[in-house]
Amino acid sequence: MTDQAYNFAYLDEQTKRMLRRALLKALAVPGYQVPFASREMPMPYGWGTGGVQVTAACLTPVDRLKVIDQGADDTTNAVSIRRFFQRTSGVAVTEATAEATIIQTRHRIPEQPLSEGQILVYQVPIPEPLRFLEPRETETRKMHELEEYGLMHVKLYEDIARHGEVSTAYAYPVKVEGRYVMDPSPIPKFDNPKLNDSPAIQLFGAGRECRIYALPPFTKVVSLDFDDHPFQASKAEHNCDLCGCGTSYLDEVITDDQGSRMFVCSDTDFCATRQAEGHRGRLSPEAA
């Protein structure tokens, strides 16, 4: 089999056109879920087919692509998707956040602030923020249409009544430009503030559910909360054990069967850059 059998970035141009129309509509109505005719892709549903289709529709031969999963460039699914685009489009790839023109991500927003001209593509499993309050699509679409979001706040109220705080740690719902309630994909709520007023274009693709939505640059994105229980971005109360950073989102790694743990930046490019700049953590090779 030869790769020339496929069009640039796998999808044919008609499909890309359909995707671009959906993307433009999504950008014109921020936070609104635009239905699109999702295609069968050569990876399974739930593994980023939505993100891959959005990336394929945006990719040009001069782009530089970065793919992360859980913040890391070297996780298996990130490697797989990056290879897929290398193979089908031949574009340049990079791990450096600042150098990338398109970043496809699953579950994280890079630590380094994005800049104008960059596109962040999110893989989305369940695009509907109201889905777990109301399973029926016909009803949730009506709730969005009529801005009936009282139920969403009932959920937050119940969390506080039960746990003393909102017990949603990821996929924390946001309101976009005072209109649509949106699921930011399963990013930790630590990342929610980065959604707001970002200079980059943020695109969200849900392949299995056939939905695309978007945040154009400099969009106002507010995490839902109560006046007296304001939203708080949270993370593990540690510094990175490799680069010492105290403000980045951390992964917990179990290091032996006694349950010993270490904490490391989930954003591998960010951590490696800091280490190269001489920052050290508790378990850095030199420090140990």
Binding site: V154, R162, F226, D227, D228
Partner: peptide, 23 residues
């Protein structure tokens, strides 16, 4: 949904956003 949440739903549906006051 708890009794408080049941009573609070209509308040939240018309825009109440202060947990303490709703309660």
């Amino acid at each position: 949904v708890s009794a408080g949440g049941n009573v609070g739903e209509r308040l939240m549906a018309v825009g109440a956003r202060h947990y303490g006051q709703i309660r």
